[in-house]
Design a protein around this nucleic acid. Sequence first.
DNA 1: GTGGTCTAGACCACC
DNA 2: GTGGTCTAGACCACG
Lengths: 128, 128, 128, 128
Amino acid sequence: MDAMKLHIEPSSPDPIYRQIVGQITRMIAAGQCPPGTRLPSVREVAAAHAINPMTVSKAYAQLETQHLLERQRGKGMVVADRTQGVTSMEERLQALDPALRDLARQAQELALPVDQVIDALRKLMKDS
Amino acid sequence: MDAMKLHIEPSSPDPIYRQIVGQITRMIAAGQCPPGTRLPSVREVAAAHAINPMTVSKAYAQLETQHLLERQRGKGMVVADRTQGVTSMEERLQALDPALRDLARQAQELALPVDQVIDALRKLMKDS
Amino acid sequence: MDAMKLHIEPSSPDPIYRQIVGQITRMIAAGQCPPGTRLPSVREVAAAHAINPMTVSKAYAQLETQHLLERQRGKGMVVADRTQGVTSMEERLQALDPALRDLARQAQELALPVDQVIDALRKLMKDS
Amino acid sequence: MDAMKLHIEPSSPDPIYRQIVGQITRMIAAGQCPPGTRLPSVREVAAAHAINPMTVSKAYAQLETQHLLERQRGKGMVVADRTQGVTSMEERLQALDPALRDLARQAQELALPVDQVIDALRKLMKDS
DNA sequence: GTGGTCTAGACCACC
DNA sequence: GTGGTCTAGACCACG
């Protein structure tokens, strides 16, 4: 149930509602949220991250428009049944591509050796 | 002279002027632009990337405020002499940290195995 | 330019932003707003109808999502080029169907003779 | 007895309880339900249309407040005796006005010719 | 309890 | 000037 934990970066240039959309989209794509999974309520998310309910609502509404989520009257949002969101590993790697390219370019601009970057990344990914 | 090539991603959530500031900051930090290096003019950059000159100007102004760039009468902007911007590799790795963490989190949300991600990254960094 | 006049019914059960979406959608479907037509700015619409700019913005954002409108940086919204919104008269009659059925049912519940209703409607449509 | 058949459109922007109130109001206004007519019970309506009993109850309560319905111990709701709800045809035509105006405006936005709309409406009203 | 809509007003990014 | 995002708080519809 709390596999649905969200991470919000308030100082990110990426707007909060889009961060939420992105995270949920990725987790559904990876099959980490099978159809029917209940999402935390708008108010829960808002309280947990000290953000405005409307911001969360905006994210949920957008995901509903994309048919990734469904609204259950009086019960909240759940992952849609026809989860056309689930994708293969190749497609998921593709979804990661922009972030990879961004990292690679920044590393190059910082003149950092490949191995240093790889090491740092591996360490971060093991921790989580 | 054209070590100063900039890469702009118009569709990025990161605003354009901040992309420019970030790139130049990183390249100066890595010592890739020794003091005195001339920057392309506002108009050149604007024309090359089909963006508004004001956007470029805003970025340059911000870098001047940070004393990373200096305005030289009739010659445009150059990298500042007292380049307090150059930093050690450790500090540069730290500068990469947000991008690394973002990538790691996205990869985890996508349920991608560490090695797949590392491979993709290594490939990208070799190419460039 | 002011073919784009909007009509807002604040007391309608249909939310305001949806009224706006509906009207613009219909006018585009009917080809009344050729691609490139500029829409009144968010602030203009908000001021003209004494509603909140965010309400208008929400409508525009939704139309942008449906690719009926495009955003021109700093210049406002315009009707999209690839106006896949334009439809045949048959399809437009179909779009009118819910309103027709609603009217027919209300008339029946009110036990109003067909001709009276038709007369009233004809009169209204001539006036406009 | 089943002249009191209700039609519910769950996807309508008009909330369900208001649909119920509207229909019953109109039918009483037209004299289609003489005083004393029994209404289907809250449970019957709720079951028949798969809606929440509270929604039906809310509609009935509102009609009772307007003195169009009366609660009879052990017998449920009936149409009120002093049916001040019955109105002349002129008044009933006036009650239809909002729906007529809405239809006319939509038709105009869709650039549909008057005769086409009239034809479609006449066809619908004959069928029912 | 759930989400939806709206307001009033602030600040940001871009042209 | 344009639209976008966010906040704080209100009220509504539905279960």
